[in-house]
Design a protein around this nucleic acid. Sequence first.
DNA 1: AAATTGACATACGTTTTGTATGTTAAAGTT
DNA 2: AACTTTAACATACAAAACGTATGTCAATTT
Lengths: 206, 206
Amino acid sequence: MVDSFEECVVATKRAQMMEETRGKIIRAARKAFAAKGYAAASMDDLTAEAGLTRGALYHNFGSKQGLLQAVVDQIDQEMVERMLAAQDQAASRWGGLLEEGVAYIEMALEPEVQRIMLLDGPAVLGDPSQWPNQNACLLRTTQTLQALIDEGTVKPVDAEAAARLINGAALNAALWIAAADDPRAVLPKAVEAFRQLATGLLKAKG
Amino acid sequence: MVDSFEECVVATKRAQMMEETRGKIIRAARKAFAAKGYAAASMDDLTAEAGLTRGALYHNFGSKQGLLQAVVDQIDQEMVERMLAAQDQAASRWGGLLEEGVAYIEMALEPEVQRIMLLDGPAVLGDPSQWPNQNACLLRTTQTLQALIDEGTVKPVDAEAAARLINGAALNAALWIAAADDPRAVLPKAVEAFRQLATGLLKAKG
DNA sequence: AAATTGACATACGTTTTGTATGTTAAAGTT
DNA sequence: AACTTTAACATACAAAACGTATGTCAATTT
């Protein structure tokens, strides 16, 4: 039981230490997973680079898969934040939806997102739309779309279905860009096609 | 050198035997990969179920990854054939494009396609759009789209970009359906949203 | 101050991949 | 037709990596 301020301060010391080691391992894992891929990344090398051993890893994350889950959660959170920022920056609600998709496409230029989120993550952890944060992101898109349907801007389709299709189009565009010889060159083409495709959901021609 | 009919017949015997064993291994691999996933599938168990040993595997495919490539190629070819059949069945060129996408979505209801083609394949072999058959499929879609652009049916966007977005939308719809509690229930919703979304590429409202 | 908890390291066993070597049947050669 | 050679596949071996079981020491509790 904690019954004084000093004891409380001391009591948090171990938790802070643990968070520190968790952070170090996750940081090393992000680098290793992005560089070598999940399967080829050795837990021994991973923890060694963080100045630790596999003992710390299994104590904190339970398994290799548990570590990947933690890494995915962290990156996913960063992605959601960036997408929300992009959405808020747009003038209209419809524009927000588009900017969100464009932001998603742009993020896939980063190897970490590419390898961990788009390739290894789904294979090891299963369908991305089942991940907690991805669900939150998709839910927001779905709600935005539903609002657009209610206000009459968008055709009366199933909001979730449309959200997933939009997401998928953006995702594939992202994969294409990341695998392209000159990613910067194909990015504008993908963004333009994305904007055009999305208008299919609009009620009236823009 | 082969200089008689009989020698020729005999000469093909070994090749036939080899094709037979290749087929047996690939068949077992399709089952195992679909059921357990690529990483968890043991090559020992795999070949044992085919009545062989790992020796045959490494002789014929070189590596575990080589076997997956062979499996992916086979399934990919089957998928392309089904997509072409769907396309040919449509009345208009635009309708063919849509039916192609719908066929793609429907195929993802099968666990083999889901697990091997959509989850493990990309993680192990890299971006699917780089696979030989996927390229052929995507190329056809791109060409169809280009023709639609030339005839004035579709907006003048980058044909390849549009093809990849369409493909991606269909792919994500497929993943959604496969992971859904009741796949048969969400299938029509996904198909309808896909048709609506695709109209964004059309010049005039349908 | 003794005891206990827990964060992390060390050591071990199991599994799996890939390779190196062996074996046998088929094909070519003389 | 017998010998040699090739090659498809099996067997045996080595290395790597994951997960677990155990050990250790600092930090907290009593």
